[in-house]
Design a protein around this nucleic acid. Structure first.
Length: 581
RNA sequence: GCGCUCAUAGCUCAGUUGGAUAGAGCAGCCGCCUUCUAAGCGGCAGGUCGCAGGUUCGAGUCCUGCUGGGCGCACCA
C-alpha cells in the first residue's frame, strides 16, 4: 500500500518483609519498597495472611490492584482489593478491609492504613520507605525505568515508510516521533526491536515521479497526474548535474527514476536522521518483486486454499477472515496488485524471525486494517498478536491562530523541515508524542517555540536544568550528596519521591499499550511538576554564609535522582535534557 | 449507503485492565521574589464526560441506538 499520508503524500516478593538489595548503602533495615509492584505483593501477602488464619474464606487473587490515588488525601497508595473480595467472602467490604488493614499495618515501611469510603484501603508509607526510591534510582542510573514486560519479544516496528516522491510531510513526521519513541520504550521493556522503513520504490507513483522529473528537466510543465512542486525541479537539477547528458540518452526517464528516487530517499533519510530517527532496515519493495518473494507468498496462499480465480483475476478470500470484500492479488492483466507486495513483505518479516510485526499507519489507511489482518490470519497467524496495526490521526499546525496548510519551502504540504525550522527538534518530537495517536492534534507553533511553562517541553526541560543547576552549585560549594534519605519528610519531598517511584511502571504500561504519550504526561504532570514544587519550598543550598543543614546532602540525592528520571524519560522520547537553558 | 475512529472545563488535551469528590495546562481573578534560574510556585473560579437507553453494588471507561467531526470504501499505489 502507499504508506503516504493523506496529501499523498517489574519479582514478586512473597513476604511483606524484605531486605533491600538495591539501596544497601542507604537503608539497612527491612522495608517495603515504594515500588508499586512490591507494594502490590505486600497487599496480596496481607490478603493471604487473612485467608491463612481463617478470618476470610476466599481464593487469594493472583493480582491485586494498588494505585496512586487520583485525589490527594487518599494515601500514598490505595487499593480496592476489599471491594473486590467482599462478594466472594460474603462480608461487607469495610469488614474485609478491616481484616486486611490489621495485617498490612504490621508491615515495615507502611506508616498507616485507613479504611475509606465503601471499603478502600488508603496506605501511607514511612519516610524511610519512601526515601528508598532515591537509592533505587541512583543505583540503576540510566537503566532506571527499564522493565521486563516485553522481554523475549522480537518486534519489527515499521513506521514512516513515506514514498520517495517528495519530502516527509507532517503526517509522516508524527510517526517518526511516535514510532521512534515506541521503539525506545519497547527496548527499555526488554524487547528486541528492529526499526524498519518500507521503501516504496515500485509502481505507478514512482513512474509519475520519474515523468515529473523528466518534464522539469526539459523545462516542460508537470504531467497532469505528476508532481509539480519546487523540490521536483531541485531533484531534476541534481540529476542533470550527476548525468549531464541525461536528456540525450535512450531512456532518460529511467535515469531520472533511478537517480531521482535515490536522491529523494537520501534526503528523507537525512532529514529523519537530523530528527534523531534512524532505521535498522530500509526495505525496498522492489526487492520483493525481484527476488520472487511475491510469487512465493502467493504460492503459499494457493497451497492453503485461500486463492481463487474470477473475472480473469486471482483473488485472496479475505472475507473468510473478516474483511469487507475479497482482494485481487493478481490483476487480469497478469500483473501483481499492490497487496501482493504486502503479502510478501509480511511473510518476509515473519521468516526473518519477528514474532510481532507492528505497522504504524495514518488515519487515511484505516481501511487497510481489515485486509491486512485477514492476510495475517490467512497465513495461519493470530491477528492483533503477530500483526498489530496502529492508526494515528492527522496533525494540524497552527500559526497565529490559523491552520497552516502549505509549506513555504516548496509550496506543498508541510514537511519535517518546516516543523523543525519553526520549533526545533526537541519541541517537535515532544509535541508529537505528548498526545494519544488516537486524537487529532493541533500544534501551535507560537506556543511550542516559547520559553515559558506554557510550553510543555520547555517546562520539563526546565525542571531538568534546575536539577542540573542545583547540583552544579553544590559541586562549586564542595557539598556532597549523601546522608539519610529518611530525613526527606517534607510533603513536597514525599510527593516527588512517589512520582519517581512510578517511572518503571509508566514505561511498562506505555510500552504494552504502545502509547508513548503516557511517558510525556507523566514527566510533565508528575515529575516536572513535583520537582518545581520541591524547588519552590525546599531550599537545598545554604544561603549566604550559613552552614549546610542535615537535609542538604539528602536533598542533593533527591535532585540527582530527579535528574536521572527526567533524563531517562526525555531520552525515551528522543528529547534532550539540557544542563542549562 | 457501509466501515473505522474521535467527542471530557471557554481553549488545548490527560484519564489501560469498570471504583472514592472526573484531572492538568492555557485563558480569567487573587496571592508569593534581600532566597539555588519568578523562564517558577500557591489559591479561587470554571463540567448534564455529545444525546438517549442498557449491563453492574459501581460507568468518562463496557454494550446498543442516535447526533456531530475526521478518515476510508479500485483489477490505484
Amino acid at each position: 500500500m502507499c504508506r503516504e499520508g493523506v496529501p499523498r503524500g517489574r519479582q514478586s516478593c512473597a513476604q511483606v518483609h524484605r531486605t533491600s538489595t538495591d539501596s544497601r548503602w542507604l537503608l539497612p533495615c527491612n522495608l517495603v519498597s515504594v515500588n508499586p509492584a512490591d507494594l502490590r505483593s505486600a497487599v496480596r501477602a496481607a490478603v493471604a495472611a487473612v485467608v491463612d488464619n481463617g478470618e476470610l474464606s476466599v481464593p487469594v487473587p493472583d493480582e491485586v490492584t494498588v494505585e496512586r490515588p487520583k485525589v490527594k488525601g487518599h494515601g500514598d497508595y490505595a487499593t480496592s482489593v476489599a471491594l473486590q473480595l467482599a462478594k466472594p467472602a460474603g462480608l461487607p467490604p469495610r469488614d474485609v478491609a478491616a481484616l486486611i488493614k490489621a495485617q498490612l499495618e504490621r508491615a515495615d515501611g507502611i506508616d498507616s492504613v485507613e479504611i475509606a469510603g465503601p471499603g478502600f484501603l488508603n496506605i501511607w508509607l514511612s519516610g524511610a520507605a519512601l526515601g528508598q526510591v532515591v537509592g533505587e534510582v541512583l543505583a540503576a542510573g540510566a537503566a532506571y525505568g527499564t522493565n521486563e514486560v516485553a522481554a523475549g519479544q522480537n518486534i519489527n516496528l515499521e513506521f514512516v515508510s513515506a514514498n520517495p516522491t517528495g519530502p516527509i510531510h507532517i503526517g509522516g513526521v508524527r510517526w517518526a516521533a511516535v514510532g521512534d519513541a515506541l521503539a525506545r520504550l519497547l527496548q527499555a521493556s526488554g524487547a528486541k526491536v528492529t526499526r524498519e522503513y518500507y521503501f516504496n520504490d515500485h509502481g505507478a507513483q514512482i513512474d509519475r515521479f520519474a515523468r515529473s522529473l523528466l518534464a522539469a528537466a526539459r523545462g516542460e510543465a508537470a504531467p497532469e497526474d505528476g508532481y509539480g512542486s519546487a523540490y521536483i525541479a531541485e531533484i531534476a537539477q541534481r540529476v542533470t548535474e550527476q548525468v549531464p547528458d541525461v536528456l540525450s540518452q535512450d531512456d532518460p526517464q529511467e535515469v531520472f527514476r533511478d537517480r531521482g528516487v535515490s536522491l529523494m530517499f537520501e534526503e528523507i533519510k537525512a532529514s529523519l536522521h537530523d530528527f534523531g530517527v534512524d532505521f535498522d532496515v530500509y526495505f525496498h519493495e522492489n526487492s520483493l518483486h525481484d527476488s520472487g518473494a511475491v510469487h512465493r507468498a502467493i504460492e503459499r496462499l494457493r497451497g492453503l486454499g485461500h486463492m481463487y480465480v474470477a473475472d480473469g483475476a486471482e483473488w485472496l478470500r479475505t472475507t473468510q477472515f473478516g474483511d469487507d470484500k475479497d482482494r485481487v492479488v493478481i490483476k487480469s492483466d497478469g500483473e501483481p496488485a499492490y497487496i501482493s507486495g504486502d503479502l510478501a513483505y509480511y511473510l518476509d518479516k515473519r521468516e526473518r524471525g519477528f514474532d510481532r510485526v507492528i505497522i504504524m499507519l495514518g488515519a487515511d489507511h484505516s481501511g487497510y486494517v481489515g485486509r491486512l489482518m485477514a492476510m495475517c490470519e490467512a497465513f495461519g497467524d493470530v491477528p492483533r498478536v503477530n500483526l498489530q496495526i496502529l492508526i494515528g490521526q492527522l496533525v494540524n499546525l497552527v500559526k497565529d491562530g490559523e491552520p497552516l496548510r502549505m509549506s513555504k519551502r516548496n509550496g506543498t504540504v508541510i514537511s519535517l523541515e518546516d516543523l523543525v525550522e519553526a520549533i526545533g527538534v526537541d519541541a517537535a518530537r515532544y509535541a508529537l508524542v505528548r498526545s494519544s495517536a488516537d486524537s487529532q492534534i493541533d500544534i501551535d507553533l507560537d506556543l511550542w517555540a516559547s520559553a515559558k511553562s506554557d510550553n510543555p517541553v520547555w517546562y520539563v526541560q526546565y525542571a531538568a536544568t534546575r536539577a542540573a543547576s542545583v547540583l552544579r552549585h553544590a559541586a562549586d560549594l564542595d557539598l556532597a550528596a549523601g546522608g539519610e534519605v529518611a530525613l526527606l519528610t517534607h510533603p513536597r519531598e514525599s510527593e516527588l519521591m512517589l512520582a519517581l517511584a512510578e517511572f518503571p511502571s509508566v514505561v511498562a504500561t506505555a510500552a504494552e499499550l504502545r502509547e508513548p504519550h503516557r511517558v510525556a504526561r507523566y514527566l510533565e504532570e508528575k515529575v516536572a511538576k513535583s520537582a518545581q514544587r520541591f524547588w519552590d519550598e525546599c531550599q537545598v543550598l545554604p544561603k549566604g554564609d550559613a552552614q549546610p543543614e542535615p537535609t542538604t546532602a539528602p536533598r542533593l540525592l533527591l535532585w540527582q535522582a530527579t535528574r536521572v528520571v527526567l533524563e531517562n524519560g526525555l531520552g525515551l522520547l528522543g528529547v534532550s535534557a539540557p544542563e542549562r537553558m
